[in-house]
Write a protein that binds this DNA or RNA. Structure first.
Lengths: 347, 347
DNA sequence: TTGTATGCGTTATCAA
DNA sequence: TTGATAACGCATACAA
């Protein structure tokens, strides 16, 4: 006896939502069995042409869409991944998400987004929910303040993006801050600047130091050094303003100031204007992060180092995909940054 | 005979992922049947105390987590909602998401995030994917440029957030721009300003006009009017700078400038500094959107109108929840904006 | 060429 | 108090 489709489920009836058509509905309308419908809809061979047409027409008529939930029960995988973020502002999270989506979407994976907002309890809660939904993998976006504790041994592969896991056996993808510093310094040298200063962000961020390191290392390779030691303090416009004033007081001959982020760079531009220095005529200014809203609104528009977060997201997705396919690539993976030149560092 | 759990699925074996334990595994370990396990784990009454303990211990030992995918097959609902966005920057999307998550998370719903990036093809693709995954509802975040085309008659409830649907029978939640303008104007009057100018954003955005309307309507109710007609042009810092210069040229006695967004306000502050006017001593400046990165970095920190996007997200979730429960509330729902006073409008 | 039975992981029902 | 079984929507192996 054919399984009876039965009465509409209580829940669906309550909610007033139309019940979506199933293979059974299509089968009944086409006057064939469930199995036949399935074969037709999946392009299996060995079906009479008119039966095929019957079924296809019925499916179209009902607006049939296969239920991926049911499918995943059979396949043992859900085709979903979780993206667990701590980035409140979404400044870095969304590019990562977009890059991940591009890479995963091609493989037909959907993304569950969870914002834990830096709260461990909330993170645990979301983690449980994602595992209960049987995600096939997990991308964890940490903030850049410090490496984060590993989530430990989970039943699904995990890739840490932006903020790496403290456990080197985990898979992490991070911007290469040293390379970024080097690229920025190289750019300033290439436009003929030689008396360079560096204003960095909050020294409690490891990245703040690494960015500065990249600069000093490249300069020393070229037989140069900063006009004053790197000044690290905060990621703010105010700090950029203060620091630039100090630098100008000590070394009025400075011809380029490189900054730990774009906010600092904006403060620097203000300080330079205050002192009657022209940008880039007297002093070139280079930001970091390439935050378009800030950078394009500045006068002049700021050159900035782009950490390529979207590419980072793509790489994270690719690593996750590899791990889900049984070929994990543990360890730290670095993404190169790129200098985006604008008026503030014209030659 | 009890159903045999069978061999590990091929896929799971391939991917190297541990197979997660099922009720069957727990039942076997505890030496009881599936049904008994289910009853224990769901706190059903009528279970012997020692059986209960057996099962609970087995579940703990295996790290059992119920499979929500399987559950949703039975319940006829998945406990997931789709969030379809067009907001590239994520500036407004993420607060909305956070608000929605708070509201939905309490009801144990998870969120699929899809970024269509303003591309209709991509939107259609994501929509299909979400429906195939049987989301219980959909929140569509439009950009604010213009009302968007309705997605039409979908098998699940839809709530449009931020950018409303053109179809008044749909459910939409949007910031109340008129009220926002009124609130801002009221604030400026309350600190004693009377000669107010308004610099707005891109006139192709309906919201740009409504914000200005709110200002003029409140002023006229108090027997006042703007010192010059509202000036709408672009959402940029550059426009703020230009417009402020023009206003100062025509009406050097202006004592407050209200802006369509925070970028404009920053340009205005620059223009005022250029002309030697103090903020807020000579001229008060009020931004809109309360974008903290911009607003706190300005000198002085800018007062700004907050559209409460997080609350908007919460309201969208609540409306979606209501619709999913069979009580849709079609039409346009407005969220009030709030003035966040800082130094730039001190009395 | 088509139909039927089975199982994926759950819960609910009903029989024991 | 516990166990067996059906059902959710689908694909697939196998029987007809």
């Amino acid at each position: 006896m054919t399984t009876d489709a039965g009465a509409p489920r209580a829940r669906a009836a309550e909610s007033g939502a139309r019940r979506l058509p199933t293979v059974n509905d299509v089968a009944r309308l086409a006057g064939v069995s469930k199995g036949t419908v399935s074969k037709v809809l999946n392009g299996r061979a060995g079906i009479a042409t008119d039966t095929r047409e019957q079924v296809e027409s019925a499916a179209r008529q009902l607006g049939y869409r296969p239920n991926l939930q049911a499918l995943s029960l059979m396949e043992g995988r859900t085709g979903t991944v979780g993206l667990l973020t701590h980035d409140l502002e979404g400044r870095f999270c969304l590019p990562i998400l977009m890059g991940a989506e591009d890479a995963l979407g091609a493989g037909k994976l959907s993304v569950f987004l969870c914002d834990a907002r830096g709260d461990a309890i909330r993170e645990q809660y979301h983690l449980e929910a994602l595992l209960a939904r049987r995600v096939d993998g997990l991308i964890v976006v940490g903030d850049r303040a410090a490496p984060r504790a590993s989530l430990g041994d989970l039943p699904v592969p995990v890739v840490y993006a932006s903020g790496p896991s403290m456990n080197p056996d985990d898979t992490s993808v991070v911007p290469d801050d040293v390379q970024a510093g080097r690229a920025g310094a190289d750019h300033l040298l290439s436009i003929g600047r030689r008396r360079i200063a560096y204003i960095g962000g909050d020294p409690s961020y490891p990245g703040a130091h690494r960015r500065a390191e990249g600069v000093t290392s490249l300069l020393s390779e070229r037989g140069l050094e900063l006009v004053v030691p790197p000044m690290l303090n905060a990621w703010t416009e105010t700090w950029g303003l203060q620091a630039a004033r100090q630098i100008l007081a000590k070394r009025p001959d400075v011809d380029a100031i490189m900054c730990g982020n774009d906010q600092i760079a904006r403060g620097v531009v203000d300080a330079l204007r205050e002192q009657g220095k022209s940008v880039p005529g007297d002093v070139a200014v280079l930001g970091h992060d390439n935050w378009e809203t800030l950078v394009l609104a500045a006068r002049p528009p700021l050159s900035s180092i782009d950490a390529n977060y979207q590419r980072l997201g793509g790489k994270a997705a690719q690593l996750l995909f590899a791990a889900m396919s049984g070929s994990p690539e543990p360890g730290l993976h670095y993404i190169d940054s790129t200098v985006v030149p604008r008026e503030s560092t014209l030659a």
